[in-house]
Design a protein around this nucleic acid. Structure first.
Length: 215
DNA sequence: CACCAGGCAAGTA
DNA sequence: TACTTGCATGGT
């Protein structure tokens, strides 16, 4: 069994068990990018409240957010937690868009993925997962998103070392699967679904995990 | 009450 | 390089 076959087998089991996840839940690419920052170490449910506040205030756009004072932005995204930190990070991202793409996320699409990733990582507040989430889910670039669930699931199934870093885990997927945005999209979303339902930090339900196998 | 959630940066050794 | 800590709300 090659790594590729193993990765595809897991994907097929997850898809059969959970069905398509329909990621990323958002009305625009811009909303995806803002959501990616808001969901850093935060439950999606809390992010939804923050997004709802921004929509209700009609501020969920580059111009809308740009005209907000940092304190006011922080107030609106309060439910997402770390609101002072995240308000600053969102403003860093807005300034990045303003200075490099005249405020248009869509204008990023024409550049190559590697360059875009470095640019995003240069923004204070955007790390590997946030950058890759924007690349894959907002710009549809073929980049695999790794998160805490991915690391936990693959470590517990002994498919990766417990101390495998982000890039190593990402390479496992990207070097062994065809680089299709749609496949990476669904795979990551399914791993999050599995993590939420069966692979929590302490309460692991490995015995009934859909990809569990007896030795 | 404790623990967790779709991280990241800054500080320390 | 490899830890450790602060950031914070809302659900279980």
């Amino acid at each position: 069994m090659t790594k590729r076959q193993k990765l595809i087998e897991i994907f097929d089991k997850l898809l059969e068990r959970f069905g398509p996840q329909e990621w990323w839940p958002a009305d625009s690419a811009f909303e995806v990018a803002i959501g990616a920052i808001l969901t850093q170490n935060t439950s999606w449910q809390n992010v939804e409240r923050a997004i709802a506040n921004l929509k209700k205030a009609r501020r969920l756009s580059f111009n809308g957010l740009s005209r907000l004072k940092e304190k006011e932005l922080a107030r609106l995204i309060r439910p997402a937690g770390y609101y002072n930190i995240k308000a600053g990070r969102i403003r860093n991202f807005l300034r990045f868009l303003e200075e490099n793409y005249r405020g248009s996320l869509g204008r990023m699409r024409s550049k190559d993925t590697g360059t875009l990733r470095k640019e995003l990582l240069s923004v204070n507040g955007i790390g590997p997962e946030t950058a890759d989430s924007i690349l894959l889910y907002a710009l549809e670039k073929p980049v695999f998103v790794v998160d805490a669930y991915t690391r936990r699931i693959f470590s517990r199934h002994r498919l990766a070392g417990p101390k495998a870093d982000y890039e190593a885990l990402q390479r496992l997927f990207m070097a062994n699967l065809t680089r299709q945005p749609a496949l990476f999209n669904e795979y990551h979303a399914l791993l999050v679904k599995l993590g939420k339902d069966y692979c929590k930090k302490t309460k692991a339900a490995c015995g009934i995990c859909p990809i569990y196998e007896k030795k």
